[in-house]
Structure formats: structure tokens, C-alpha cells
Nucleic acid binder design. Structure first.
Length: 796
DNA sequence: CACATGCCCCTTTTT
DNA sequence: GGGGCATGTG
């Protein structure tokens, strides 16, 4: 790889302030390339500068760029940065999420994809309720086949690019699951809806099976750029391969397309939803990648923090290999704090952060508290609330996922698509209008035997209930009439009024927030139409202009143009998507912010997953206990433990200046007190970077503690540390508050023998005395909870 | 048919 | 501990 730059490069302000590796990445020649970009190494900057560079040097026109990200946020950021760099119209570029781009593609080619023009998108909730409905209809035992599991199965199959007929049947139950998958597909097709996986899979199949379409897009996109490549699943990889095309035996051909993949195998934390780090290695092999560049210079953290991250991740075996370095000094040590209870832990964290704000002048929004799972936020929130510290919790319900919003959207969807049974069922009796379960059952039976949608079957139900149904449908029909030719804003206002939703929530005691949210929906629609991009996506460019540019690309213009640039869903008529349909799509693809209160200087609370891509001056990683982090379900096999370690790596690398690691001896979880050992990850951090604020207990084979009791007697802020256990108990298992060490002497991670189940690994311990239980994973018999008073477990 | 009570489950998350 | 869901009662 040469670092020599084209002559113009040296003068381009775009390249100023880039380090040699970043510059090499930005100015890469044509060909496939993989950028291994460590945390805080300026990855987004490289990606956007690369696009700007390609455009500025005239190597490609905006229409030849396709850049794909995982989140809307990342896509938006890329667009914003790009328009700040170059005075160009970003309109011609395809920049967005995988699903967003697939949606755009399917809107342009709905007919070829076998979809109705008004197809709507099911989110995860909708998908689950569609599956439940299906299972009920086919009398599937939901004990044996939980709907969630079926959903998981279907989504997983699609992520691997598998249709029902392609799924390999490994277990007896799979036969039924595949059957359900098949039925589910038929149901979605009948109702004109697609789930997230379907957006990807349909697009992929259309590209695969339609030569004209594939060749068209292959000719168009000369540069494909992929962010967070380590998070791509099998299907996304295959999709990319289809688009890349222009290769012989997978090798890049000069004049063909170039794929630039940017990723970090150490930050791959989404295997549980189908992400495949292996795509990185496959990419290098199958695309015969010409250029690999590592970005290892970290601009974010002091070296104590970075050393900790490097040291930890070094314990993973499956790595491409990469070590972050920084020019910044060691900075502050990584502080470790142990508390007796989760409550005390939270109090200590709050007290410590108040000091940070008061004495160190740190802004509250520069402080993040991270945890492994959402359930842990509660105790932290309580402590923050009691202390009067402003905070903001990420995660939880987003705007478009709120029940009242989903209700309103269901009415709107029914205006667009009468066949949408999921939406029909959601609102047929909401607000209540005398249509009960019996009636709905009757209606479903009628619809099934006639092979129609619920909407079409309404006439088949007689009596009072039938009249109610007819009135409901009539009301929808009237609304549909009334909403012709009026603005999106007016449509929504009308629907809110005439559906009775606002009225219903006004009458409810706790309904004020919901009414407010419904009003907010009007605003959301308004800003969607004006700024957000309905205009961008749906306004057709002049057809003459298009034909000209198409002709110059050597595309046959005697046929109707197949190109989203027309953006009209129907390429023949030039008809565009209605603002309402576009808005509904937007609502499904972008679930919206949670409780946006920007501007306020508040402490940030979130899961480690949610923190990926963010950075803060000060970071607290809490609940660092075996069974919590690493999570108990991920402790038993190496692969998932390695993912937990990567998760910890992500958490550590969020911090710029100060990092705190806290753990608690006891924790209230699911209403029960659990005694957890300090996380095994502590043993994987460099001692030299750590400062133990509380005595380092002996864990996992470490030597005895060197702590002197007088050195800490609870003098830390908040006085929360005052649990005076004695020195002897420090070397043993976790100490219950009654100071009675558990008699069983088991610790998680221990190998044990059971007379019936054989050898196993202790995953978790719970309770004391006669109530003590252990969760053990056995080879043949799986994971079991055992009462220690009964089960005879012998340590091996 | 609407509302209340009991029961079961319980990673991580984006689209 | 708490939310979602199924079942029971007015």
C-alpha cells in the first residue's frame, strides 16, 4: 500500500489535519478496501471525507455514491457533515440505513417485487401481534411454540436470507416453525405488509433475479461505502455483493465498482441479532481486498483508559488484531469501587458525580452511567431523583412506539390500505365501541372462509355487533373520502378528531400525556413534510433530465426508466407516493427519539449497547458482577463470553478522561436478592491503571487482599461504604449481609459434579441457607436451577 | 362487553 | 418489581 498522494491532495483542505493512515484511507485508489477502525480513531470522519474527496476530485458524481449505515442517526450525521464539507446537493446520493435504502428501492420497484404500491412496514411489535394472531387462527399450542420464539425464528431465517423452503430442519419442532413461517409470509402478502427482514430480503431477491434491475444499479453505484461492517448479517453482505457486481470471480475489475468497508471486529456486539463478524474476513477473501488500513491512533482517551481496553480485549482469541495507542498521557487512574448493595452503589455514583460537577467543573451531560441491562437503571434513577440531579435515560419507549401513537398510525394506515388486518384489529374497538372478542372471532372466521381481509368481511356479521362493525368501517370510509386532497397535517388532525382517540384520552385520568403526544404527532408530520425529507425522497426530478443522464450512462431509454431517481413508485405513470404513505413509512423506519429534552444539562443513563458510538468525559460502568456483566446467559460458552468482553471494551472506550468501574456484593433482581461475585473482567485489566477505592477482594485465584481496614472505613463520599465485614471473609465467596458466609462454598464459574446430570459449570448463585440455589449448566442436560439443600454438588 | 384481579416472565437493540 | 396477558366477575 502506498501513501503517495495525488498532486492535488496536498492542497486539498479536506485532507488537512488527517493522520497518514486516515489520509491513505480517504485517498485510496479504486478497488475494494477494508478499514479496521478502532474506537475513537476518527472513523466517521474518514468515511465522510472519503465521499467528499471522491466527489471533489471528480472521480464520481453524487449519483454514483451509495453509503450505508445501521442507524438513522449515523446516516443523518454523515449527511450533515458532508454538506458542511462540500457545497453539493446531496440529493443524488443514496445515503441511509440498510432498511431505509431497501425501502426506497422497493418503493421504486414495488411491482417487480410483487408488492402493492402502498405496502406498509411492520415494526417488531406489529410483527409479534401478527404472529400471535396467526398462531391463534391455526390453533398452534403457544406453550410449545411461544410467539416470541416463532418471531425469533422467522427473523433469524430472513437475516440468513432463507425462505421457508430453504430452512434446514434440524429439530422436530423446526418443521412446525417453518410451516408457521410459510403461513406468516402468506398472511403478510395478503395484507400488503412487510417486516424489517422482508425489506432486505425482497430487495436482495429482486437484485438477484432481475438482470435488468441489477445491472442498472451496478452501473450506477460506483462507490459503495459501508459503516459498522462488523454488524452486518449474512443477508446484508449478500445484498452488498449483488450491488457491487462488476467483478470477475469476485475480484475487482478496473472500471468496476469499489466497496469500502469500515468496521471494528472488537466492537461487534450484535451477534445476538444475526450480525456476523465473519463477514469481515469473508469480505477480504471473496472480494480479494486490495487495501487494508488500520486506524489505531485514538484521539479520545488517556492511556490508562486505553490500556485497560487493550489489555481486556487481548483476552479474546478471535481477533483480527489491532492495538489502540494515544499520544495523551496516562491521565487519571481507572477507579474501582465496591459497594455492599446496589442501592449503595447508586448512591455512591450519584455522590461522586455531584463532586465531579461541583469541584471539577464537569458538565452533567458529559457524565454517563452505563449498565448491562435496562433493569439496572431503576435504582440509579431513584438515587438521582432523590438527590435532585437532572438525568436522562436512553432506551425504553420511543415516540412512534407509544400505544396512543400506534393507535393513531393504525387509523392512518387503514386509510392507505384497507387490507391491513393488524391495524384493523388494533383499533376496531379502540376507543371501545361495543365490538368484543366474540364479534371479532366471528369476523375473522368469515374473512378466513371467504379468503378476504377483515375489512371486506364486515358484511358477514349480523346483529347488533355487525351494525357496530359496519359503523366502524363506514366511519373509515368517510374519513378516507374526506382526506382526499387535503394536507398531511389536516389529515392527521381530522383522524385524531373523528377516530375518537383524543376524546377518549381526554376523559382518562392519566390521559393528558397521551393527548399531548397525539398533538405532537401533528407536529412530527408537519416537520416531516417541510424539512425532513418527504420532499427529498418523493419529488420526481424532471423526466427529461433523467432520460438525458440515463442515456449518457448508456442506459436504454426506450423502456420506462427503472431508477428511484424518478422516485415515483410507479415508473410508468410517474405517480408519487402520497405524503401520508411516505410519512407512515418514515414512522415505521424511524422510531423517533425517546423523550427529547435536548439543551438540558443532564446526566446520561443508558445500556452499554446504546452507548456505542458515543463518548463522554466521565463514564461510570456499573453492576460489574459475574452474572450481570458478563450476563449469566453468556458466561458458559467462549463465543458469547467474548461478545460480552467486546461489550465491556466498548464501554471502557467511551470515556475520555475519567472512568469508574463499580460493582456490588448484592443486587435486587426480579424482586430477589442475589449475591454476585466481582466481574471476571476485573482480572483482565492492568493493575497499574487501576485505583481501588475499596479493598480489592480476592477473586478468581488472585492473591489475598492487601487492604488495610483503616484506609477506607467508609470515608468515601456519601458514606455508603459502611459495611464492615471482617478480613477473613474477604477471601471467600460473596458475603451476605448477615455475615454468614454461605456454607456450600460454591462460586460461579466453578466446575461441579452432579450424580445424575454429570459435570457442569456453576453459572449463578442465589439465596442463602436452605434457600440457596445454584444455576448450573450441564453438558447433556442443559441449564438447571438446583436447590443446594437437596442437590448434591461436588466441586471438581 | 368492560373492568379488575391474578399469573408468568424476565438480556442486549435497530430497522 | 412490574408489565403484559389471560381469566373471572359485574
Amino acid at each position: 500500500m502506498s501513501l503517495e498522494l495525488p498532486a492535488v491532495a496536498a492542497y486539498s483542505p479536506l485532507l488537512a489535519n488527517l493522520n497518514p493512515e486516515q489520509r491513505a484511507a480517504v485517498t485510496l485508489p479504486e478497488g475494494h478496501a477494508l478499514i479496521l477502525a478502532g474506537a475513537g480513531s476518527g472513523k466517521t470522519r474518514v468515511l465522510t471525507t472519503r465521499i467528499a474527496w471522491l466527489l471533489q476530485t471528480g472521480q464520481v458524481s453524487p449519483g454514483g455514491i451509495l453509503a450505508v449505515t445501521f442507524t438513522n442517526k449515523a446516516a443523518k450525521e454523515m449527511l450533515t457533515r458532508l454538506s458542511a464539507m462540500l457545497p453539493i446537493n446531496v440529493r443524488g446520493m443514496w445515503i441511509g440505513t440498510f432498511h431505509g435504502l431497501c425501502n426506497r428501492f422497493l418503493r421504486a420497484h414495488w411491482k417487480l417485487a410483487g408488492l402493492p404500491a402502498t405496502f406498509q412496514i411492520l415494526d417488531t411489535q406489529d410483527q409479534l401481534s401478527a404472529i400471535k394472531r396467526l398462531m391463534k387462527q391455526h390453533n398452534v399450542d403457544d406453550e410449545r411454540f411461544p410467539a416470541k420464539e416463532t418471531q425469533w425464528f422467522i427473523a433469524g431465517a430472513k437475516e440468513d436470507g432463507l425462505r421457508p423452503r430453504d430452512v434446514e430442519i434440524r429439530r422436530d419442532d423446526d418443521r412446525k416453525r417453518v410451516e408457521l413461517y410459510q403461513l406468516y409470509e402468506e398472511q403478510c402478502q395478503r395484507e400488503g405488509v412487510v417486516d424489517f427482514g422482508e425489506l432486505m430480503l425482497r430487495s436482495y431477491e429482486l437484485l438477484r433475479d432481475n438482470d435488468a434491475v441489477r445491472e442498472h444499479y451496478q452501473r450506477r453505484f460506483r462507490h459503495l461505502l459501508v459503516d459498522e461492517f462488523q454488524d452486518t448479517n449474512r443477508l446484508q453482505y449478500a445484498w452488498l455483493k449483488m450491488l457491487a457486481g462488476n467483478t470477475v470471480d469476485g475480484r475487482f475489475v478496473p472500471g468496476g465498482n469499489s466497496v469500502l468497508a469500515v468496521g471494528d471486529d472488537d466492537q461487534s456486539i450484535y451477534a445476538f441479532r444475526g450480525a456476523r463478524v465473519g463477514n469481515m474476513a469473508d469480505f477480504v477473501r471473496e472480494f480479494h481486498v486490495d487495501h487494508q488500513i488500520k486506524l489505531e491512533q485514538n484521539y479520545r482517551s488517556f492511556s490508562n483508559i486505553l490500556d485497560s481496553a487493550n489489555h481486556l480485549i487481548d483476552h479474546n482469541t478471535q481477533r483480527l488484531g489491532k492495538n489502540l495507542r494515544t499520544d495523551q498521557g496516562p491521565g487519571e487512574p481507572v477507579r474501582v469501587y465496591e459497594s455492599p448493595t446496589d442501592f449503595a452503589e447508586a448512591q455512591w455514583v450519584v455522590e461522586e458525580m455531584r463532586q465531579l460537577v461541583r469541584e471539577n467543573g464537569i458538565e452533567r451531560k458529559e457524565i454517563a452511567v452505563l449498565y448491562r441491562s435496562n433493569a439496572q437503571s431503576r435504582v440509579l434513577e431513584t438515587a438521582l431523583f432523590n438527590a435532585g440531579v437532572p438525568y436522562r435515560v436512553y432506551g425504553g419507549l420511543r415516540f412512534f412506539e407509544r400505544a396512543e401513537i400506534k393507535h393513531a398510525l393504525a387509523y392512518l394506515r387503514l386509510l392507505e390500505n384497507k387490507e391491513d388486518d393488524t391495524s384493523f384489529l388494533r383499533v376496531v374497538n379502540f376507543p371501545p365501541r361495543g365490538i368484543g372478542a366474540r364479534t371479532i372471532e366471528q369476523l375473522q372466521d368469515a374473512a378466513r372462509s371467504a379468503g378476504t381481509s377483515l375489512h371486506a368481511a364486515v358484511g358477514a356479521v349480523s346483529g347488533k355487533a355487525g351494525a357496530n362493525l359496519a359503523a366502524f368501517v363506514a366511519r373509515l370510509d368517510v374519513l378516507r373520502e374526506q382526506t382526499q386532497g387535503i394536507s398531511l397535517r389536516e389529515i392527521i388532525e381530522l383522524v385524531l378528531q373523528h377516530s375518537g382517540l383524543v376524546e377518549h384520552y381526554r376523559a382518562e385520568r392519566e390521559g393528558a400525556d397521551r393527548v399531548e403526544n397525539l398533538e405532537e404527532l401533528v407536529n412530527a408530520a408537519e416537520s416531516f413534510v417541510t424539512q425532513e425529507g418527504f420532499g427529498r425522497d418523493a419529488v420526481a426530478l424532471p423526466v427529461d433530465e433523467l432520460r438525458q443522464s440515463a442515456a449518457s450512462q448508456g442506459i436504454d431509454t426506450s423502456q420506462p426508466l427503472i431508477d428511484e431517481a424518478l422516485v415515483a413508485p410507479d415508473a410508468e405513470t410517474g405517480e408519487t407516493l402520497s405524503p401520508l404513505a411516505a410519512f407512515l413509512t418514515h414512522a415505521a423506519l424511524e422510531s423517533g427519539d425517546n423523550q427529547a429534552q435536548p439543551g438540558q444539562d443532564a446526566v446520561q443513563l443508558m445500556t452499554v449497547h446504546a452507548a456505542k458510538g458515543l463518548e463522554f468525559d466521565c463514564v461510570f460502568i456499573t453492576g460489574l458482577e459475574d452474572g450481570i456483566f458478563p450476563h449469566e446467559n453468556s458466561m458458559s460458552d467462549r463465543e458469547s463470553l467474548e461478545e460480552e468482553r467486546r461489550l465491556m471494551y466498548v464501554a471502557i472506550t467511551r470515556a475520555r478522561q475519567r472512568l469508574y468501574l463499580t460493582h456490588s456484593q448484592t443486587r435486587l433482581l426480579h424482586g430477589k436478592t442475589r449475591y454476585n461475585l466481582r466481574s471476571r473482567f476485573f482480572e483482565e485489566l492492568p493493575e497499574s491503571a487501576l485505583k481501588w477505592l475499596t479493598p480489592a477482594r480476592a477473586g478468581f485465584g488472585a492473591g489475598s487482599s492487601s487492604y488495610e481496614r483503616s484506609s477506607w472505613g467508609g470515608q468515601r463520599a456519601g458514606g455508603a461504604g459502611g459495611w464492615n465485614y471482617d478480613r477473613d471473609s474477604l477471601a471467600g465467596a460473596p458475603v451476605p449481609p448477615q455475615k454468614a458466609a454461605p456454607a456450600h462454598g460454591l462460586r460461579s464459574g466453578m466446575q461441579v459434579f452432579h450424580n445424575k446430570f454429570g459435570e457442569g459449570t456453576v453459572l449463578a448463585l442465589e439465596g442463602t441457607g436452605d434457600d440457596a440455589r445454584a444455576q448450573v449448566k450441564f453438558g447433556r442436560h442443559g441449564v438447571k436451577w438446583l436447590a443446594l439443600a437437596v442437590a448434591k454438588l461436588t466441586p471438581i
